[in-house]
């Protein structure tokens, strides 16, 4: 587990609500306030997508929405910037392996 438990300045000890979601079909969980990227990182997941042409593994890079390195398929929608998207109960998160396919708007 990559969660920080003790910190000299910040307090991470507060109980937070557990948020359940699936990652490539597997049931996992993060906490309220997590982004998808932070929840996955806490689980030790580093690979979020593969590059479009050479299919090389990709993780996040900037964590503030600038670089598009963290794109994943979330609830069927491709190219979601997971570093600035908050985790929600029941989300379906998948590794993205292409440039994204058209989907039906809900």
């Amino acid at each position: 587990m990559m969660r920080i438990k003790e910190h000299p300045i910040l307090d991470f000890s507060k109980e937070r609500k557990i948020i359940r979601f699936t990652f490539n079909g597997q049931e996992v969980y993060g906490y309220e306030g997590d982004t998808i990227a932070s929840a996955l990182s806490a689980l030790g997941v580093k690979e979020f997508s593969v590059s479009i042409k050479h299919k090389r593994p990709r993780g996040f890079y900037c964590a503030i929405g600038n670089c598009s390195s963290c794109h994943m398929i979330v609830d069927g929608v491709p190219n979601v910037k997971t570093c600035i998207t908050l985790l929600k109960e029941g989300m379906k998160v998948e590794t993205q392996t292409n440039k994204g396919e058209l989907y039906d708007l809900k």
Partner: peptide, 19 residues
Amino acid sequence: PGIYGAGAVQTLMNVYGVK
């Protein structure tokens, strides 16, 4: 993956509490 911008690491640690 695992090669990050320093600011990204700071966000991950100090905002979300993840190493």
